[in-house]
């Protein structure tokens, strides 16, 4: 048994789209493989100690809550960069995804700083992008997987040239409704707009993140292979969600 240590950033502020569902999925899927997930809340003013966690999770919040945490996150920025440099994995969803970029430019000029952990910027748009989404991802060469979720964001996220999106949009808006891409991936760091929550209906991504976290825990470059689970309910839920995206995913 290995204890996987998760640092959950601002669970009191960033929790709007049922982010605790993602944590529940990671916890159970680790337990079913005989590992224990230890989840620590990292709130306002709490120190981030590089190397102390194997995975960071940042959820989404309403604009007001997001603004309240943005400044505090900047104070944690240096430690988070060091932790990620040391191989800690990160999953950031929706508002958390925006905060990992260089910043958010509001519609009325109100700006929000980011920490530049991902090579991207976000600018507010006039119309919200709301609806079911389906992506095709290839996190490991030759292993194509689909990711199904729900998006609800006003921000248009632009990736820097040459950086790697999380996936190609099969249905729905994605990062900006135009590029045909969604999310961003940099090594073991994943940022995405997809909630719903993300992991219950996309168990392959939950396992990928667990494997990355275990690699950090064990100090290996190569992520360990996790024992497969039947995932029958998960696949049924994925199919329904994917079908919704194909039939009613958003587009301009």
């Amino acid at each position: 048994m290995t204890a996987v240590r998760v640092g959950h950033l601002y669970p009191d502020y960033l929790n709007i789209y049922a982010d605790r569902g993602n944590i529940a999925v990671l916890t159970r899927r680790a337990a079913w493989r005989g590992h224990e997930l230890e989840v620590a809340a990292l709130g306002m003013g709490d120190a981030v100690v590089p190397g102390e966690h194997d995975l960071y999770y940042v959820g989404g919040g309403q604009d007001r809550e997001q603004l309240l945490v943005a400044e505090d996150l900047v104070r944690k920025s240096e430690a988070l960069h060091e932790a990620v440099g040391g191989g800690t994995a990160v999953l950031a969803v929706c508002g958390g995804y925006q905060l990992l970029g260089r910043g958010y430019r509001g519609f009325h000029g109100e700006d929000m700083p980011g920490i530049g952990l991902l090579p991207l910027e976000t600018v507010a748009g006039e119309r919200r992008m709301i609806g079911d989404v389906l992506l095709e991802c290839e996190l490991e060469a030759g292993e194509k997987q689909t990711l199904a979720g729900f998006e609800n964001h006003a921000g248009r996220t632009q990736l820097d040239p040459g950086s790697e999106p999380l996936g190609r949009v099969l249905a729905g808006f994605g990062n900006d409704g135009e590029s045909g891409f969604e999310g961003c991936r940099s090594g073991r760091v994943i940022g995405t707009y997809l909630h719903g929550p993300l992991l219950p209906r996309n168990p392959w991504l939950a396992d990928w993140l667990l494997a990355q976290a275990l690699a950090h825990r064990l100090g290996t470059d190569e992520a360990p292979q996790l024992e497969p689970l039947p995932d029958e309910l998960e696949h049924r839920a994925h199919e329904v969600s994917a079908a919704r995206a194909r039939s009613r995913g958003g587009r301009f």
């Binding site: 929790n15 789209y17 049922a18 569902g21 709301i130 609806g131 729900f150 929550p197």
Partner: peptide, 14 residues
């Protein structure tokens, strides 16, 4: 998950 229910079902996890 019709419009009147909310198309986003994430709320059940809350």
């Amino acid at each position: 998950d019709e419009i009147a229910d909310g198309r986003d079902v994430s709320w059940i996890w809350d």
